[in-house]
Amino acid sequence: MARSQPQKRATVHDVAAAAGVSRGTVSRVLNGGYVSAAARTAIEAAIAEVGYVPNTAARNLVRRRSQAVGFLTLEPHSLLLEDPNLGAIMLGANEELSVADHQMVSLVVDSARDTERVARYLSGGFVDGAIVVSARTNDPITRVIAALGLPATFVGHPPDLAREIPWVGIDNAGSAQALVTRLAATGRRRIGMIAAALDRDSGADRLAGFRAALGDRFDPALVAEVPLYDYASGVKGMRELLSRDPSIDGVFAASDAIAAGALETLRDAGRSVPSDVGLVGFDDSSWAVRAQPPLSTVHQPARQLGAAAADLVLRQIHGHHPTPLLLPSPIIWRDSA
């Protein structure tokens, strides 16, 4: 039995012949150029007739564009699955890129090996730009992006970030200060903090806001430092604070996930929230609304951050030079304080 031959792919020449126009006229339609209404109608009918599908790969090769943007998450794999903010930022970025007909490529950096691999990938021209989430101070990926001159936007703003690389974020310090000031106004006298990710701008700025809110009442012994914005860190940090000062009556957790872990630990210790201890978080994530009682927190517009980051990258790809962007992050007051 003879093997059937694969169907020949329709070309621009086939479309031109079916439409009765030149190949150049077809190319102008495919690339968004001007042609008469009659010619456009004829070409669109011809495309449907011959089954022409544009060769995007070839077109991008000519343009030296990949139509792809890397989404780099500089966090452990476990946190990527647990932190709803990371997922929301990713979805917001993907929605914006999709509208612009760009593909998002997710790249997780969790080790030195990952860093080397991703650096090679970025250097290979596989993406036109990058969105970077959770960059730390002196992060090697930051240096690679700066050296390549790759269009990029950072969600957050590491202190050593090159000035020419745009970023989008929130006022972590100001929001934390406002939240802790309100917590103190409820009559709390011994307020501690579970401070996370102090090697990143978000963690360091939230601690700075906490200190500013308490002023002379700030006690460094009531700051428990933990590595990640996760539930387990909340459990560990709250146990540490209770061991340092059992009379603690207020806690600022650097994220809602941390606050959820702290809440469970306080319950296990026989402490009621908010009667015995006022507890506040940060992010206004699903952790905040699932907790009992629901958490007072700062609303971080994660999805909008992702969309804004994607927009800033696309603008750079098209030759613009956008400025950094701060989004509002209001306090959401609930029953935990």
Rank of each mutant, 00 (worst) to 15 (best):
D160G: 01
S22T: 14
A48I: 07
I248D: 02
P293A: 07
A213K: 03
V29G: 00
S78R: 12
G174C: 08
L214W: 00
S78A: 14
E264D: 15
L305G: 06
S78T: 12
F154E: 03
V118G: 06
V280E: 02
D171N: 12
T153K: 07
A130H: 05
V168C: 06
W287H: 11
S4L: 15
S243Y: 09
A135L: 12
I258L: 10
R188K: 06
A302I: 07
G203T: 01
Q304T: 14
L305Y: 03
I131T: 04
A45C: 01
A212H: 06
R64P: 10
I191C: 03
L214D: 04
T73K: 11
T297H: 11
L74M: 11
L241G: 03
L81M: 13
R239D: 14
A39Y: 01
S134N: 14
H102V: 10
P166R: 00
V35Y: 06
A135F: 09
R9P: 07
A173C: 12
V226G: 04
A260T: 13
N138S: 15
H320R: 15
V69S: 00
S255K: 01
E225K: 11
N85Y: 13
G187N: 02
V50E: 00
R3D: 12
A19W: 00
D216N: 12
W333V: 14
Q103N: 15
E116T: 13
A260N: 10
D128G: 05
A262S: 11
A204E: 11
S336H: 05
R239G: 15
E116L: 11
D101K: 14
V132A: 12
P76L: 03
V69G: 00
R3A: 13
A39D: 05
L263E: 10
S296E: 05
V21N: 00
D110Q: 14
F282S: 08
V313L: 01
D101H: 15
A18E: 04
S255D: 02
L222C: 07
R143T: 15
N55G: 03
E116H: 12
D83W: 02
R120A: 00
T115M: 09
S243I: 06
Y229I: 09
Y121A: 02
R271H: 07
L242A: 02
R315P: 01
V144A: 13
L266Q: 01
A262W: 04
H157L: 12
S106Q: 15
A162C: 08
V118H: 02
R244Y: 10
V180S: 02
T323E: 15
I194M: 09
S98I: 10
G33E: 07
